[in-house]
Amino acid sequence: MDESVVVTPDWLAAHLEDPQVCVVDVRDPWEYDGIGHVPGAVSIPFDSYRDETDVDRGTLPGADAFAELLSEAGIAPADTIVAYDDTHGVFAARFVLTALEYGHDDVRLLDGDYSAWNRDHETTSDAPDIEPTTYDPDPLSREESPLVGFEAVEAALERDAVFVDTREVDEFEEARLPGAVRFDWREVVDDETRRLKPRDDLEALLAEYGITSDREIVLYCNTARRISHTYVVLRALGYEDVAFYEGSLTEWLANDGEVERGAVD
């Protein structure tokens, strides 16, 4: 896997003393304080970088609000960020996507989660000393961003794009984009190790669904959380043509987009 996208617990352990490596814990504050965290990690809870009022696209919090969070956490634009949660990385992947969208060049997902880290590495309940920064965001342009909207998705439906729905079976059967394949985002995780499956296994698994690196891929779910994990995994595997439908099915239905319903044979 590409270490510029996903890093192993051993990689993180070897770089904890690097002052330019900032570890971000996106779990709830009670977990961070009460259960413990990776040494030196700062707490930026999931709800703090998600805004349901649509001040920006989808549930993105807005560049200034996100920059304020990073400033308070003592993070600078040149730092390497490694994010983790305790839910196989799905909430941390949303942080990765958000940071990338607002122009942070080096942000990575911890392979596994807090439980995976805790098996072999030290944890602490001590809060780190934080020296606030003045973080200046540099949001991606519409052309640079992987995020797409309703009209772009409509256009992609006319092409040979693979639409990937990462939701549960009942959600998929209730309504889905035409021709979409259902891919449970959790299938890429090894239940025993809590980490991603080996690269060859991942590529074979994705190929079973027609999700291959030579195809145009469009990801969606309901509110763009679950697809964040799939997006990061595909980037780590070297997929280049991956679009992220930030509005997802919530926006699609609000705009009376065409859907299919029912079980798939």
Rank of each mutant, 00 (worst) to 15 (best):
D25H: 04
V23M: 09
R50G: 00
D33H: 08
G34Q: 09
A41Y: 01
W30Y: 14
G40S: 11
G36H: 03
D10E: 15
I44L: 14
S48C: 08
Q20C: 03
D25N: 06
D28M: 10
W30H: 14
D28F: 04
R27T: 04
L12S: 02
H37P: 05
F46N: 10
V5Q: 08
V23Q: 04
P39V: 11
R27C: 05
P9D: 10
C22I: 10
Q20R: 15
R50P: 00
P45C: 13
P19N: 11
W30I: 12
A41S: 14
I44F: 03
G34K: 09
F46I: 08
S43H: 12
T8Y: 06
P9T: 05
V21I: 12
G34R: 11
P9K: 11
P45G: 13
H37Q: 05
E3Q: 13
I44H: 00
L16A: 12
R50M: 08
E31A: 07
S48V: 06
W30G: 02
H15V: 10
V6K: 08
Y32A: 00
V21G: 06
E17Y: 09
R50W: 08
Y49M: 12
D10R: 12
L16R: 15
P29I: 03
S48I: 01
S48K: 14
D10L: 05
V26G: 00
D10S: 15
V24I: 15
V6T: 07
T8W: 10
G40L: 05
D47Y: 07
E17K: 15
E31N: 09
L16Y: 07
H15W: 08
D10I: 00
D10Y: 02
P29M: 08
S48L: 11
D33F: 10
V6Q: 08
A14S: 15
I44V: 15
P29Y: 03
